[in-house]
Design a protein around this nucleic acid. Structure first.
Lengths: 228, 228
DNA sequence: TAAGACACTACACGCGTGTGTAGTCGGCCG
DNA sequence: CGGCCGACTACACACGCGTGTAGTGTCTTA
């Protein structure tokens, strides 16, 4: 599944692949159709011929990655080693397209891709819940969402994490160090039960005292546009 | 972060503020000097006069936020309620500049800002370590880095998390739901001790058997190069 | 073989952009 | 007062970009 697929020999696929790299490396706006075409070994007009516009090219990229993750999800469902963080697995599989995915997610695009990962996390969390004595504070969906975001953070902030660990995450040493670190973080709660309980009480108190206040005016000063 | 300061009445400060918003909303490339100037109520030439170039303007923005976070860090060190996630605190303080910070971090910029947050996390983690019975798998720096990335993930993936929770994070309801969810996640390990131990053994085995080559990371797939 | 569809190219246009330059206004110091 | 310096503006230029259009080769099919 990792190798180039039959269709990947076509010019259309080459263009899409080049676009994923250029968009990931330079960002959507800074990447140029001409540059993508050159990398793909075609003329710039052909890009437009196949994808209609720059935006169309981007949508094709999103589509391609979403299908890849979906396929990965399906085949992981059949034979998955338990206790494997699904987001980490996706991240690994994304491979060379990591910069594109990171930009897309951080820019607010690729919502279906994120949601797909949330679905995977839900399944994973549901299993973990069965071995958990106390009832969760929040519902499965909320926890899966946050867990997904956290799992993706290493990929999105890849450069910063690499710098912090002192080794590139995509080298074997870096991946190993990251795995060990993640293992520690995932197996040790950052808050003790008594601290959590007290903070939870405080939160509940706040929510009860001000359920009606400030409802009309959310703080968002700027609607976030979906562009780079 | 807090109200406008005295200096924020100058045209230079107004430009910087407008730039932070425009860069955050549209991204660096799509944002235009003319648009920023209009928002700031000045001519486009003045932007160049004060900041030299568009890139210079961006660097001034980075600088401003870094100093803001540093100041926040310092004053939090004096009187900080313990058990408060420092990254979460920074995130709240960033306020309206969240989109800018998210874009900067995801784009690989703002390294000093990330590193500053890692420093804060180190202090926080060091305290938590004192209450921890078993020795950590990885050193403080590595864990602080990963914890920082995870803490920032909610901010960087703000729109996706909002969508997943079903409510905007910057509404009181959203913030509360997020807090409760984070509380649950931070107070409950995702991996049990026995699972963690077994995975750790497996990791060690891998690292010892293949220090040199090949599948050093269980994490890599999709490694084909897409030439031709 | 004729003809049409498709992959693909070459080229030009128009627009928006960052940047450069010249010039005006206003306050501060000698 | 007079000169100067910084804040600030108006305007024009050159360039890169996405997009449009016309044209060429090639494969398929009736």
């Amino acid at each position: 599944m990792t190798g180039p697929e039959p269709e990947d020999l076509t010019a259309r696929a080459r263009i899409r692949d080049a676009a994923l790299r250029h968009f990931g490396e330079h960002g959507f706006d800074r990447a140029t159709i001409r540059g993508i075409a050159e990398t793909a070994g075609v003329s710039s007009g052909l890009v437009r011929h196949h994808f209609g516009s720059k935006q169309g090219l981007r949508e094709a990229c999103d589509d391609f990655l979403l299908k890849a993750v979906r396929r990965l999800n399906d085949e992981a469902r059949t034979h998955r080693p338990p206790d494997t963080n699904p987001v980490a697995a996706s991240m690994a599989a994304i491979g060379p397209y990591r910069p594109y995915v990171a930009r897309a997610l951080a820019g607010g695009w690729a919502a279906p891709l994120f949601d797909e990962m949330v679905r995977m996390s839900e399944e994973w969390l549901a299993e973990a819940d069965q071995r958990r004595p106390d009832p969760p504070f929040a519902d499965l969906r909320a926890r899966a969402t946050v867990a997904t975001a956290m799992g993706l953070s290493v990929m999105v902030l890849y450069q910063h994490v690499s710098r912090g660990l002192g080794v590139d995450l995509f080298t074997p040493e870096g991946a190993h160090l990251l795995a060990v670190t993640l293992l520690d973080v995932y197996s040790h709660p950052m808050l003790g039960p008594e601290e959590a309980a007290s903070m939870r009480d405080a939160l509940d108190k706040i929510s009860h005292s001000s359920t009606q206040e400030g409802r009309g005016a959310p703080l968002r000063r700027f609607e976030e546009n979906h562009d780079d």
